[in-house]
Design a protein around this nucleic acid. Structure first.
Lengths: 138, 138
DNA sequence: CGGTTTCACTTGCATAATGCAAGTAAACAT
DNA sequence: ATGTTTACTTGCATTATGCAAGTGAAACCG
């Protein structure tokens, strides 16, 4: 089911064909920045994704190798979703989006520290998020 | 008409609410990397955007301050669309998308040089694209 | 053990976004 | 004057998303 549609061979276009819909990046954001890892947690996000859309996006992200799905240590009724390396490597894109938005629209207070850190040393900031994520997910 | 919908206060979510649809980033890509600046040129892109969608996306991007619309020097029947500073500052996001895709899916030969340049010195590469764009648009 | 709750979905149907073909009006070219 | 180019608009088909309710397996609770 993966990669049925591909509007062109352009890397930008192909990337958007994978995760350029209304919800995929928000799910990934939840995993990266809020350490979420289960269906129920994603549903609680303030944007309010619908249950059927969430299921379909998770499946698509899995088929594209951006997240992995496995048994949840807490319960057999749950699943544990976690980013693959391919998913972790989307972090720099999020950082750039964050900086762009902060520059032109400002950000809520809770994000100021992150923006400041990213502005001072982007590489180090990306590395710190990756490390934090790997730690939390291990 | 601008900013009617905003799913949350999250910078990522807000950014996606501005340009996170199926087409906006491809129009901006055409302006940045292919120096396109008119309706007719955008229509010719390989992905094949529909005329009504193109018109609506151009209007939205203008309302959000990402592009500007002005008279075309060649003809009064045409308009000239160009990126604002806010639009130019999306370039780092494109570069990261490009690198991500190249890392996991490879890119056609015509993009190899760009990926190599971006990998060696990202800051310099972003600067060179910005400069090239400003030159072409002046 | 049996009933209730939790969890991760699926299903059916409404609405919104996008796709397609044709049409329009102003400017331009001959 | 006439046909062409340009930037759209309009109407309708199709696809994506939104919403509410339902389902089945596992967990929890007395």
């Amino acid at each position: 089911m993966s990669q049925i549609k591909k509007r062109s061979e352009c890397p930008i276009s192909c990337s958007l064909d994978i995760w350029g819909d209304k919800w995929s990046l928000l799910i990934i954001r939840d995993m990266i920045f809020y350490k979420k890892s289960s269906y129920g947690e994603f549903l609680k996000s303030p944007e309010g994704i619908a249950t059927n859309i969430l299921a379909s996006r998770l499946q698509n992200l899995e088929e594209n190798g951006i997240i992995g799905k496995s048994e949840h240590p807490d319960s057999k009724a749950k699943f544990l979703y976690k980013l693959t390396e391919k998913g972790i490597d989307l972090i720099p894109i999020f950082v750039e989006i964050h900086l762009w938005y902060a520059k032109y629209s400002g950000v809520p207070a809770e994000f100021k520290a992150a923006v400041s850190a990213a502005t001072q040393d982007k590489e180090a900031y990306v590395r710190s998020i990756k490390d934090a994520w790997r730690k939390a997910a291990s």
